[in-house]
Design a protein around this nucleic acid. Structure first.
Lengths: 248, 248
DNA sequence: CCTATTTTGTGTAAAATTTACACATTGTTT
DNA sequence: AAACAATGTGTAAATTTTACACAAAATAGG
């Protein structure tokens, strides 16, 4: 019991310290590591994922996440950002690591570890590179027959997103800079798979006090246009700490 | 715009499919991957982390997480479990992946990716291996001067735990099978760094209906002994889905 | 231009949940 | 037996969440 309570002050010298850690690390088995991005977008009131055709014969005609290898001296996040900006041409995109997948059999070419990232962007800002018709926005509901273990990865990121948007107002990353409250509500309803009360929804978001009234209105809608707002990211960043749940 | 709406039905054959994925994977840069476990315990009303002396000269007298390399054909979770059972001799321990750390400079011996796991166990069941005096339970508050980026990893896992025990009743993994409500409350208070109202705390946990009254009482306490309960893990697993927050 | 249609924008009362709070009971120590 | 220390319990007030309806704004169609 004594050992549990107090740390030994000096190291017992029955085995010696490693002087050259490089030699040690060289003996470790090593394996390729990739970063895969689950890129979410929102359009036509549906949550979408950006996918690409697999370029492996083994996965012919199947869809795959956007990903790439992590280079020798590259940080994991940097690799994910690189994938993102190469594929979308966009910058300053929301990106967060979700989980790492490493089943030895997940890649037909041998063992490959992949670190999965979740990314949220506004589809409107993205029209350039999409003309590469190997890329496609898929409705999250209709995914089928994906390459590798990518279905599992998408599922994990989707659940992650559902939980996360109830704790932090991440959803704004999926919307245009100016949006109506109806669009915001549609977004939450689509992601959570619920229908929400309009008045209570508005009350809740106004109470959070992160919406800036633009004094503009929707255009080209076949009905009374709604007011447009933007999300005050800066204000949110400052008050982040206080948060713990939006609770629908 | 058309491309956004509908997927191309047939693949344009301007570039060919890869027939031998192994050849491709062989060209990838590869790196060692390790699994590091942040093993939490609870004793004397304090949250503790199990650490070991670093065996690297560069980190002489610093403390390090328990970890090991991931073997060539080993699943990530399996590697983490292996670390856990080798070091603690325990089985069936709560273990969950938290995040992967991969800064190119995090290991002095070269690039090593580590997948961090959070593990919760009952310190009482663990007395055998602790006699190795290179292992020590550290108070979470007094960590200082850890090897590698392990302080960052511990911090991340601690925050993860704080959030997680408010969403799921994981705390029970840290307690003996039979415990009093006071012990349970102490646990939550220690992890969250709050003091909670005793009556409301009890009300909340009874309402969850996962506590089984053992009809036994604490022994050897210098005051009125409290009733002992156990947590009904099976019942919880069945009703898991319904959960979303304990909310203190 | 008038009417029908659609969607926005707003407040309140009821229900549910969370919080604050005190005293009698049980067992130990001296 | 008296002092001490912690358990165990209920209720009222405050807060939060829910349910719900109607007038106003703009468009579309005749």
């Amino acid at each position: 019991m004594e050992q549990i309570e107090t740390a030994p002050l000096t190291r017992p010298r029955n085995h010696s310290l490693i002087k050259d850690p490089s030699k040690l690390v060289e003996t470790y088995p090593s394996m390729p590591v990739t970063a895969d991005c689950v890129i979410f977008g929102f359009e036509e009131n549906q949550l979408k994922v950006l996918l690409i055709r697999s370029d492996l014969e083994a996965f012919k005609d199947k869809w795959s996440l956007l990903g790439d290898i992590v280079y020798d001296n590259e940080d994991l996040n940097d690799a994910a950002y690189r994938v993102l900006s190469q594929r979308t041409g966009m910058d300053n995109i929301f990106l967060e690591q979700v989980r790492t997948f490493g089943s030895p059999s997940r890649h037909p070419g041998g063992r490959v570890i992949t670190v999965a990232y979740c990314s949220l962007l506004n589809i409107q800002h993205h029209q350039l590179k999409i003309l590469d018709n190997e890329l496609h926005w898929h409705n999250i509901e209709n995914l089928a027959d994906m390459a590798f273990d990518h279905q599992t990865i998408v599922d994990a990121c989707y659940r992650w997103l559902q939980r996360r948007i109830q704790e932090h107002p991440l959803g704004f990353n999926l919307l245009p800079e100016k949006f109506s409250l109806r669009e915001l509500q549609n977004l939450y309803e689509a992601i959570l798979g619920l229908t929400l009360d309009r008045r209570n929804f508005r009350k809740k978001f106004f109470a959070m006090d992160f919406l800036v009234d633009m004094n503009e209105y929707e255009k080209d809608v076949p009905h009374r246009p709604g007011k447009l707002y933007k999300f005050d990211f800066a204000k949110y960043e400052k008050n982040k700490r206080k948060w713990f749940g939006i609770d629908f």
